[in-house]
Simulated assay, not measured.
Amino acid sequence: MHICLSDGWGGLEMYPGRIIPELKRQGWEPHGLALAGSAVAASLVEAGIEPMTVPTRGRALLQVGRVLAYLKRHDIGVLHCHKSSDLRLGALLATLRPKLKLFFTDHMGVTRAKKDLYHRWAYGRVTRLFAISDATRARNVAAFPLPVERIKRLYLGIDLEPYRPRLSEAEREALRRELGVPAASVAIGLPGRLTDGKGQELWVEALALLRERYPDLAWHGVVIGGLTAAEGSDEAYVAGLRAQVASLSLETRLHFAGFRRDLPRLFEALDIVCVPSRNEAFGLTVIEAMAAGKAVVGADSGAIPELIDATCGCLASPDAPEAWADAMAGLVRDPEQRQRLGQAAQRRAAERFELAAHVRALLEEYSQP
């Protein structure tokens, strides 16, 4: 059973729904526990299972008997939590039913020590903690009250098939027009939640420098991500970002696409993908762009340098808009380099970040005695 009692919507919340179809394909019977009415619950239904639901995180603890009965009825022996707050329930269930194996994926990258009495109890019930990058594993080892051998780096994976090109040239051009990209312009996209830390402000500043330093280049920026709190974004941050775009007179060079469910197709319309997140725990957007065969410019911080290097992408400091402007200018000028980097990135995604391989590694851990 995957437990994700979150009312938000981001990479962490998307994870159970992403892997459940592959768990089924590999012979397991997955179950889910989510908050009633949450996006997580809806994603589990879309993935093909009817999740058990609770009204609130607090009520989940009060309904521990109901959850235990469900586990017994379905002969569930593995629990997998995805938020640190879920471990309160997971550890309690593992305490009351000692044969349960309890797993936890740290999707966020812990930033402070968790070695007080409560955390020693909760993490003491964890069979294996999964870090999603080497960068986060180093922090996990320092922060969590667990022996290092119980903390394993397990990169995330994606289904590569949706990212293979499907659009005809006419369809691709129509999508580019929808995104406001003028004919013959290079489309530079930044997908992700619009919130502090994802680097959109730095990127907008870099676009202004790109226009100033390289006035001969034809390009158009596309911001992809929800514009409201209901879509997972920070509305105050969005308003500030729009004000920044206006103050730099970039309204005609930048399009806000909003939340889109057709991201694989949007990648087809883009030529360059930028991920300037300051301290990304993994970088799901990076591997999605790689799978789509795109030239990626990523921040040289957090886990992103584990995903791309100079052979399959570009790295720039999240504190240096000048470096981003120069990196984007080089790719705008050189379509052959964009193609070469994109093809290399696509090969690396297939070799290292394929969903079926991720799930096989996960199941090996689940199956350990």
Rank of each mutant, 00 (worst) to 15 (best):
S233E: 04
Y123A: 08
T195D: 01
R278K: 09
R338P: 02
E29C: 06
A292E: 05
V126A: 03
R128M: 04
R59F: 13
L89I: 04
Q337W: 03
D300E: 08
R253D: 11
A122F: 12
E149K: 02
A34P: 15
D234I: 09
A142E: 15
P16W: 00
A47Y: 08
S133T: 07
R66T: 14
R73M: 13
Y163I: 04
V245E: 01
R211D: 03
A230P: 00
A361C: 13
A91I: 05
A316K: 07
H80I: 13
Y163H: 10
H107N: 06
A138E: 14
A60H: 12
K72R: 15
E201S: 12
E173G: 01
R333H: 09
R213W: 15
G225K: 00
A183V: 12
R261V: 11
E365C: 03
A320K: 01
A292I: 07
R166I: 12
H119L: 03
E171R: 09
H80N: 04
V359Y: 10
G197H: 11
Q63N: 15
Y237S: 09
Q200N: 09
E212R: 13
I132K: 04
A269C: 08
M290C: 09
A316Y: 00
D271S: 09
G258N: 05
G124W: 06
R25E: 10
V238R: 00
E13A: 03
A323S: 10
D216T: 14
C4E: 06
R166W: 04
R139F: 15
V126R: 01
L270D: 04
L44E: 05
R59D: 12
L250G: 07
R333M: 11
D262Y: 02
A113L: 11
M14C: 07
D7P: 03
L79T: 09
S249R: 15
R59Y: 14
R18I: 14
P145Q: 08
T311A: 07
A131H: 14
D326R: 12
L33S: 09
K294H: 07
L160G: 06
W9I: 12
K24D: 06
R242E: 07
V67M: 11
L202F: 06
L96Y: 05
G192C: 07
L202E: 13
L5H: 09
L102T: 05
W28L: 13
G342Q: 07
R57I: 14
A91M: 05
E161V: 02
A361T: 11
L207D: 04
N279I: 01
R73W: 00
